[in-house]
């Protein structure tokens, strides 16, 4: 069991996740007072990764629920196995007692378990990590459903009753803030905002994640990305883009950056045509700045 904030931080680092002390504190507290952790931040700053790494740190199973518009109970929590139910009733024949038959087919045996039920009704030795990813993609109805799950770690199934977690999972919810998530849901969570890392931290992240990038390359790629983040772009590159860029450059055998290399690989960092055009006009300045980083 983890006992201090330092321990969280060092174990994250052991798993090649470079996070600051504030994040480690939030994770530590979420574990201690058994509250879900709500992580917000721009795309690609390492929100999902934090949950994945925590599963490794705790030695727990990672249960991931990717949200999308229209996600409902049948996809997220449970569904009855209707074909089996129908077959079963046919087998019982017409003489069977209807009430008894109904009880029988609405039992755990006929239940299809989806991620949320799996996480609540777990038999794991170490409680699993439940990652509810990109909750901002789901709709309000789904948020409302999550309220019960998050405050009491239980799911109510009308036909079966309430299933309560004996060992509550460690819940991490992420959001890219494409819309505001309801306050009622946030109130049940601890909140943490992940910002873009500063230059030194980003270099450390590249070094930890892309070992094939030599020391000089990691520094220069981080410098390039920081240069881009100071520009007026629609979509600023996240850490995920920094890592992609470092991998691309390393794959080309680059030991450092120059204008031609940046021109050829800029697509690893920027994904909008307007952004690419704007950045292309600034390549010489970006390279000069990156070399000085």
């Amino acid at each position: 069991m983890i006992e201090t904030i330092d321990e969280v931080q060092s174990k994250l680092a052991d798993n090649r996740y470079i996070g600051d002390r504030a994040l480690a504190t939030s994770i530590f507290l979420a574990l201690k007072i058994q509250k879900p952790l709500f992580i917000e931040g721009e795309a690609g700053v390492g929100k999902t990764e934090a949950a994945k790494v925590m599963a490794d740190v705790l030695g727990a199973r990672l249960i991931r629920l990717q949200c999308y518009e229209g996600i409902d109970l049948a996809h997220a929590a449970y569904e009855w196995n209707y074909p089996r139910q129908l077959l079963h009733i046919r087998l019982l024949g017409e003489s069977a007692d209807r009430r008894a038959a109904e009880r029988e087919i609405f039992s755990a045996e006929f239940l299809l378990r989806r991620p949320l039920l799996d996480a609540i009704d777990n038999r794991d030795l170490v409680p699993p990590v439940l990652l509810i990813d990109e909750i901002d993609r789901s709709d309000e109805e789904f948020e409302a459903f999550l309220l019960e799950l998050l405050s009491d770690f239980q799911i109510s199934i009308p036909e079966l009753g309430t299933i309560r977690a004996e060992r509550p999972p460690f819940v991490v919810i992420t959001s890219n803030r494409t819309r505001e998530v309801h306050d009622a849901l946030k109130r049940r969570c601890l909140y943490h905002w992940i910002d873009y890392p500063d230059l030194e931290k980003e270099i450390a992240i590249v070094e930890a994640r892309v070992p094939e990038a030599t020391d000089g390359l990691a520094r220069q790629v981080a410098g390039l990305v920081h240069g881009l983040r100071d520009m007026d772009l629609y979509k600023l590159p996240g850490v995920a883009e920094t890592l992609d860029w470092a991998r691309s450059l390393a794959a080309l055998g680059a030991k450092g950056v120059d204008e031609a290399l940046v021109e050829a690989t800029l697509g690893a960092a920027l994904k909008y045509q307007e952004d690419l055009e704007r950045a292309r006009t600034q390549i010489p300045e970006l390279v000069v700045r990156a070399r000085g980083a």
Binding site: A22, T25, L29, E40, D183, K186, R187, C189, L190, Y191
Partner: peptide, 8 residues
């Protein structure tokens, strides 16, 4: 902060 804050 992580208890009382709920948006950026």
């Amino acid at each position: 902060r992580c208890v009382f804050v709920s948006r950026r």
